[in-house]
């Protein structure tokens, strides 16, 4: 049943992170992503782990839900790991078999790459788990606002995003309905070759297109009837405000950044402590 699944992966609880301003969260997430690429040592990853676990703990989102988000990139993870293990030819040779040669640098590099990707995905999904798609849309509109001075259609862009979001649930339902209706007429989407399977989707795509056009037309009528004339005279219902939570959030991340940079700057002087640097 599609309709029971809420769109996006928002996890509905009330927490410190949930209550933060979406704009603050969005900025923090971007900084976090940048930060990840400065991390080059396992000490750095240890810091990152502490930061991420704290953030997850404060957000009241179960760790399981955050870890689940890695599932989607599992194939990518394994693929990059294999590539790195077999194609890095630096450091000490650990194993040699047929044409495969495994070096210790390769193992390290692969491990770091996997960690980086994992933390990247976990961090961004923490953002989407604690922020609704609607809030994110508003945050993007607000953050991009300066661009409207150079005639970039920020408002229109945000409206398109918002309309898309509000239409996704009914579009999913509609697709589900059409699939069931065609199945009831004996349509088979699961067997046959590629060509046959693609052909089998025509009876779904055409009705979906037809209904989307009708939807678009009715939506245009509805928007016109409600005096929509572009962004010129519009006011805004939603008021976004930064609060003390956002300040705390920023401070918290600042501490984390300082730590990363310290580790980054000092990695050479720690290099002799092999268990730290590997």
């Amino acid at each position: 049943m599609f309709r029971d699944v809420t769109f996006g992966q928002y996890y509905p609880v009330d927490s410190f992170v949930h209550r933060m301003d979406a704009r603050a969260k969005l900025i923090l997430a971007v900084l976090y992503l940048v930060g990840i690429f400065f991390i080059n040592s396992f000490v750095g990853f240890a810091w990152l782990t502490i930061f991420l676990l704290t953030a997850i703990f404060v957000s009241k989102v179960p760790l399981k839900s955050v870890i689940k988000s890695i599932k989607g990139i599992l194939v990518l993870l394994i693929f990059t790991a294999i590539l790195n293990v077999f194609f890095t030819q630096e450091g000490n040779l650990l194993l040699s078999w047929w044409i495969f040669k495994i070096y210790d640098e390769g193992l390290k590099f692969a491990a770091k790459m996997m960690l980086r990707l994992t933390y990247l995905v976990m961090g961004t999904s923490l953002l989407t788990l604690t922020t609704t798609a609607v809030d994110l849309t508003h945050a993007i509109e607000s953050l991009l606002k300066p661009l409207s001075y150079i005639k970039f259609p920020v408002h229109e862009l945000a409206l398109i995003m918002s309309l898309t979001l509000s239409f996704i649930p009914s579009l999913i339902e509609e697709t589900d309905r059409i699939i069931r209706a065609q199945k009831a007429r004996g349509a088979d989407f699961d067997t046959g070759g590629i060509g046959q399977r693609v052909k089998a989707f025509v009876p779904i795509l055409i009705p979906l297109l037809v209904s989307s056009f009708r939807r678009a037309e009715e939506l245009a009528f509805a928007m016109n009837s409600r005096c929509y004339e572009g962004s010129t005279k519009r006011t805004q219902f939603r008021v976004q405000k930064f609060s003390w939570r956002d300040v705390v959030g920023v401070l918290f991340q600042l501490v984390f950044f300082v730590a990363i940079f310290v580790v980054f700057a000092m990695q050479d002087s720690w290099a002799h402590v092999s268990w730290l640097y590997f």
Partner: peptide
């Protein structure tokens, strides 16, 4: 189904 005309495609 309800509103079966929405499944027409050919």
């Amino acid at each position: 189904f309800q509103y079966p005309e929405n499944q027409l495609f050919a």
